[in-house]
Design a binder for these strands. Structure first.
Lengths: 209, 209
DNA sequence: GACCGGTCTGACCGCATGGTCAGAAATTAG
DNA sequence: CTAATTTCTGACCATGCGGTCAGACCGGTC
């Protein structure tokens, strides 16, 4: 079985190996960082020889990109239904903050791996493969959410981009604080973030009781 | 003249070379990223041979750390006097946001280089040399500032750490947005950040006219 | 038994890395 | 002008990298 036939007609063993190698990659990057996560070290952690990775994946770059796809898909699968369940836009905003923090709070290795990958993984031409910017999926979701809230008159008028970027950064900031110091009460931290952002979107004249 | 006698009894040429090599390092990391910034490429950009770096600096790690020291010292030298000039704590907070964004807005390479270094540079034991966390200098400054504002009753009561981290991240978020898309109006972006954070620290019952 | 496709190993390739060093070149001192 | 010192070069080293590949191994099927 050659590499990279994602999704179709996979042997049981192929499926299992791929999962194992993705997991080993996440663990290695989380622990040692993108730059130190060589194929040799990933293979060693998985208990196989380097050639196995070449057999199941077309290249190291492809491996990394599949890790990113997997993590983003998993986190979105956890966050999206909770978002749909929230009522007002303000609630959606708070829910988003809580859901993201909760997901990565219980997937520390995914958090660290993704963080190390997005700031390091590059295309052949040297440019970042996952550039920061308004196109990043989380930021896009937040901008849409804020704009919708403004159109219904539920939120004050302001440029949605800075707040969307800030919410995104605040979440990763919270998680990195916690990754550095696990003593931090993530729940309380998330509550505080929700308070900050609710104050920022609340129309000036209508205070909640 | 051997390497690393920082500050004392430097030849004119030594001083100049050190500056040049620090600058070449910043440019190389800003353009290619930490992982691709090899001694060979840095030397090539400076137009000298690799050995020169070894002659003027004890090691590549030391070079990187001197870059970080230089950038932090420069930015603080630009921000600190403006902070001292601001009156209320709310003004200080807004001033800090504007001053940081303004400094790095006119030092794009320093911004990109520092960003790439802090998430990548590691100690011999594999741990990050500049770990995120409450000890980061910017966050410390902000926590002190917020706490002082609370003690004078000027700001609402809240845990200063999440907001401090958020302000820090929001600033780097703004700058990275701008680094990705230079069309962005940094001044307006900074104004919007100031609005967000003023809303978050303002006591609930006292609206400004 | 022989055969077969899928899976895996371990050795190997070319290359880039950080670091070292003898000696050439440039600068300064006397 | 010579001698001493600082500065620099270019070749070299050991190491680790991503990637390749011939052949071993393994569970089935005739």
């Amino acid at each position: 079985m050659r590499s990279d036939r994602s999704g179709v007609e996979q042997t049981f063993i192929e499926e299992a190996r791929r999962r194992q190698l993705l997991q080993a990659t996440i663990e290695t990057i989380a622990e040692l960082g993108y730059g130190q996560a060589s194929l040799a070290r990933i293979a060693q952690r998985a208990g196989v020889s380097k050639g196995v990775i070449a057999y199941h994946f077309t290249s190291k770059d492809r491996l990394i990109e599949l890790v990113v796809d997997h993590v983003y898909a998993s986190s979105w699968a956890a966050v999206q239904p909770r978002l749909a369940g929230a009522g007002t836009m303000t609630e959606k905003l708070a829910t988003f903050v809580h859901a993201e923090i909760q997901y990565y709070g219980s997937h520390r290795q995914q958090l660290l791996a993704i963080g190390s990958i997005v700031v390091n993984h590059r295309c052949a031409d040297g440019s970042l493969h996952y550039p920061p910017g308004a196109e990043a999926s989380v930021v896009r979701v937040l901008v849409d959410l804020l704009r919708a809230g403004q159109e219904r008159g539920e939120l004050t008028s302001f440029d949605p981009l800075p707040l969307a970027v800030t919410v995104d950064r605040a979440i990763t900031g919270a998680l990195e604080q916690w990754a550095t110091d696990p003593e931090i009460d993530l729940q309380a931290y998330a509550d505080e973030l929700a308070r900050i952002f609710e104050a920022a979107v609340r129309p000036l004249m209508t205070e909640m009781p």
